[in-house]
């Protein structure tokens, strides 16, 4: 009996000491595991950058940077293939600009409405509706564009084919609307109430206050919304693949056009050799565009936080 009593504390002490040791080891292991999880995102970015750069450079070197970026003819499958991506570049730029031209005013006004003017119950209905717009898959937008928008454009403007830059611009404008609305609404909501009160007290009307005081005060947030929209629009592929016609024309409003993204999506499945490498180069150009936009967005958001 006495042996037993004596042995309990030693046993306890021993196990406690071991436990402490085990616990310390466990802590160290968990720290290591979480560190690994933490840097996985960095690894992904490096992987993507490395793959795009290394698979994108050979074709550019072979074709020549000038011919590649400023060549106006893309004939990837011809006997004498030509790889000029200026039509794609310009289409992406025009398409994005057009979508912003249509989408930003509507989105900004909707955000202003939700943030300042709308009665509470109405805003409570509209806000989830905007979120829902953001959740609709892009192929569904493409389908509607293809079945509704393209025939409408064809009959309204009396064209032989309605699949054109205009259709793509309208689809893109609708697709970027939700992100513009939600980001600018957040920015508008963050404007200090005192600014608006001061303006109202000085005799400005409510509308004047919203547009001349609140909007300028929220300008970095609104700029971030615009940049985010640009990023979305330039990277969208499937929806415009279904409505833009996909011919490598120089862009005009009513011509069938190919974007940077759709050029990749369209030809990747059957490409080979230099054609395939040129598609990777297009991806690299797109990636550089996106990185520039991302950096711009980060700067804007940072300035918004400080200012």
């Amino acid at each position: 009996m006495s042996m037993n009593i004596l042995s309990i504390p030693t046993h306890f002490k021993g196990s406690f000491g071991r436990q402490k040791h085990v616990r310390k080891a466990l802590e160290r292991v968990m720290h290591g595991i979480f560190f690994f999880f933490g840097i996985v995102a960095v690894g992904f970015v490096l992987l993507i950058s490395a793959y795009l750069i290394f698979s994108g450079l050979p074709a550019i070197r072979e074709i020549g940077l000038r011919n590649f970026l400023f060549g106006t003819v893309w004939k990837s499958t011809a006997a004498q293939p030509e790889f000029g991506i200026l039509p794609f570049l310009l289409t992406s730029v025009y398409g994005t600009a057009g979508a912003m031209l249509v989408g930003v005013p509507v989105g900004f006004m909707t955000a202003m409405f939700l943030s300042k003017v709308a009665p509470r119950p109405l805003a409570a209905i509209v806000r989830p509706a905007v979120d829902l717009l953001a959740g609709i898959p892009s192929v569904v937008y493409g389908l509607i564009g293809m079945i509704v928008l393209v025939p409408t454009i064809r009959s309204v403007f009396d064209l032989s084919d309605g699949a054109c830059l205009l259709a793509a611009i309208l689809v893109l404008a609708i697709m970027i609307l939700p992100s513009i609305v939600s980001v600018s609404e957040t920015a508008l909501n963050a404007v200090p109430k005192e600014y608006e009160d001061a303006s109202l007290a000085l005799g400005a009307t409510e509308i004047e206050t919203y547009f001349r005081v609140s909007a300028p005060a929220a300008k970095s947030g609104i700029a971030a919304a615009i940049v985010l929209g640009i990023g979305r629009a330039i990277g969208e592929a499937m929806a415009i693949l279904m409505v833009a016609g996909n011919v490598a024309n120089m862009p005009t409003l009513f011509s069938s056009v190919t974007f940077l993204t759709t050029a990749i999506a369209k030809e990747m499945s059957y490409s080979s050799g230099l054609q395939r490498q040129a598609l990777f180069s297009i991806a690299l150009v797109l990636f550089l565009f996106i990185m520039l936009i991302n950096i711009g967005l980060n700067l804007l958001l940072k300035r918004g936080k400080e200012g």
Binding site: A41, G235, I264, A283, I290, I293
Partner: peptide, 8 residues
């Protein structure tokens, strides 16, 4: 990663 288009 958030900003990279899905096609890439």
């Amino acid at each position: 990663l958030t900003g990279i288009p899905s096609i890439l």
